[in-house]
């Protein structure tokens, strides 16, 4: 509070090369992250008939389709647990990730009118778009709990890993959308590419199938997709299938951190041009 009342001296000058991250500024504007997240939540289901049920309907309907075609007709093996809960456990973090990816990547362009008029750290936009998805995730999570009761599956002691996995999914989403949102300001192709990217990414992630069908020699490359680690971890932690956190999760985490750090610097480098280009 007091820091706001004393005049701070702000120096404005052209930033050269790779701009510093300026996390202090982000901290000063932390309330704005809350307000943007809150706005996205408030507005998302306004003037809809089903309201927040959409958060549940999307993963549940996907789960039903998967269960009928992959589980029922194609008889895809599901590591010894019923196929519906097998796929739904994976769809939860996936929906969180893909929603965050799509919203955050479009966040700069959809807030063009604010960007061209007011200053605030632009990082706030993709960050708050990502966080808004977390509430949908929690709502959809309740369905999983009901399904676990229905199928008589007890949560394992591995549950401790869950928050870290959620974090990993969010970090991955933020990292990728830092790149894509900044690119989208310059090249609107990103907007057209997003649905494909999301679909493509879903196929290379073990959602409809188990990662155990991937041959051993491809495992390393397969683990380069951070969402592989997240989805496998979710199943291990909630359903007790597969192996515990190991090399796959380590690789996934490293890649996610790498994407995010490089994304941060790229974003900051492009940030000064946003208002002129958007």
């Amino acid at each position: 509070m007091s820091s706001m009342n004393e005049p701070r001296t702000i120096v404005i000058k052209p930033s050269t090369g790779w701009a510093a991250l300026n996390l202090k500024d982000l901290w000063n504007y932390r309330e704005l992250i809350y307000f943007f997240t809150w706005r996205d939540l408030k507005v998302r289901y306004k003037q809809t008939l089903l309201g927040a049920s959409w958060a549940i309907l999307q993963p549940v309907l996907t789960m039903v389709v998967f269960s009928v075609f992959f589980g029922g007709l194609a008889k895809v093996p599901s590591d010894g647990v019923p196929y519906p809960i097998f796929s739904y456990t994976a769809l939860l973090p996936w929906t969180l990730f893909s929603k965050a990816l799509q919203d955050a990547s479009r966040s700069l362009v959809s807030s063009a009118n604010i960007i061209s008029k007011v200053y605030f750290p632009r990082l706030i936009l993709p960050l708050s778009s990502t966080l808004a998805g977390l509430v949908d995730f929690l709502i959809a999570f309740t369905v999983l709990l009901l399904m676990m009761v229905f199928y008589g599956i007890h949560p394992t002691a591995n549950l401790w890993l869950l928050p870290l996995l959620i974090l990993l999914a969010l970090v991955t989403a933020i990292g990728v959308s830092l790149w894509l949102s900044a690119l989208n300001v310059m090249y609107r192709d990103v907007g057209h590419m997003l649905p494909f990217l999301s679909q493509f990414w879903m196929y290379i992630t073990p959602i409809a199938y188990s990662s155990s069908i991937v041959p051993e020699k491809w495992r390393f490359i397969y683990a380069l997709n951070p969402m592989t680690g997240v989805v496998e971890g979710f199943r291990w932690s909630l359903l007790g299938t597969g192996e515990g956190p190991g090399i796959t999760l380590l690789i996934s985490s490293c890649i996610a951190v790498l994407i995010t750090i490089s994304g941060l610097f790229y974003f900051r480098r492009m940030e000064r041009k946003f208002a002129d280009l958007v």
Partner: peptide, 19 residues
């Protein structure tokens, strides 16, 4: 726009005391 930090200058410096 430069004074309100919406866009960055290409050259030169601005110092502003306060919000």
């Amino acid at each position: 726009k430069i004074l309100s930090r919406v866009t960055e200058p290409t050259e030169g410096v601005v110092e502003i005391r306060g919000r």
